[in-house]
C-alpha cells in the first residue's frame, strides 16, 4: 500500500508544477474563424439535443496528455465533438477520414 497521492488527470491543471514558471500570455484576440465555427457547431448540436457540455468534457478529457498540450483549444473541442457524433451515429467515421 502506498500513501502517494495519485497524479491529477491531464486536464486538472490547478496548481500544476509544470506551468509554475510560465508567464500568462496576455492574448486578448477573439477566436479565429476556425474557433468560431467549432464553437457555433457545439452550441447548435447541443440545442438540437445531440450532445451535452458533460459529453464535450468527457471527449476533451480523454485526449492523451501529449496530444492535449499539442492541440489548440478549439482543436480539442473539434476532436471531442466529431468523436461524439461518430459514437452516436450522426456521422460515419469514414466521412471524417482523410
Amino acid at each position: 500500500m502506498s500513501d502517494a497521492t495519485p497524479a491529477p488527470a491531464t486536464h486538472d491543471l490547478g496548481g500544476a508544477p509544470r506551468f509554475r514558471c510560465t508567464p500568462v500570455e496576455p492574448d486578448d484576440a477573439p477566436p479565429d474563424a476556425f474557433g468560431k465555427r467549432v464553437d457555433a457547431l457545439r452550441q447548435i448540436l447541443a440545442r438540437k439535443g445531440l450532445m451535452s457540455v458533460d459529453e464535450l468534457r468527457r471527449g476533451i478529457e480523454a485526449i492523451p496528455e501529449a496530444e492535449y498540450h499539442a492541440l489548440g483549444y478549439y482543436e480539442r473541442w473539434l476532436r471531442s465533438i466529431s468523436g461524439l457524433m461518430v459514437e452516436k451515429g450522426v456521422v460515419a467515421a469514414e466521412e471524417l477520414r482523410p
Binding site: A16, F19, R20
Partner: peptide, 10 residues
Amino acid sequence: HWYKSSAYRA
C-alpha cells in the same frame, strides 16, 4: 485566450 491557457489555469 489567456483565460483558457495552461499557465493561467495552473
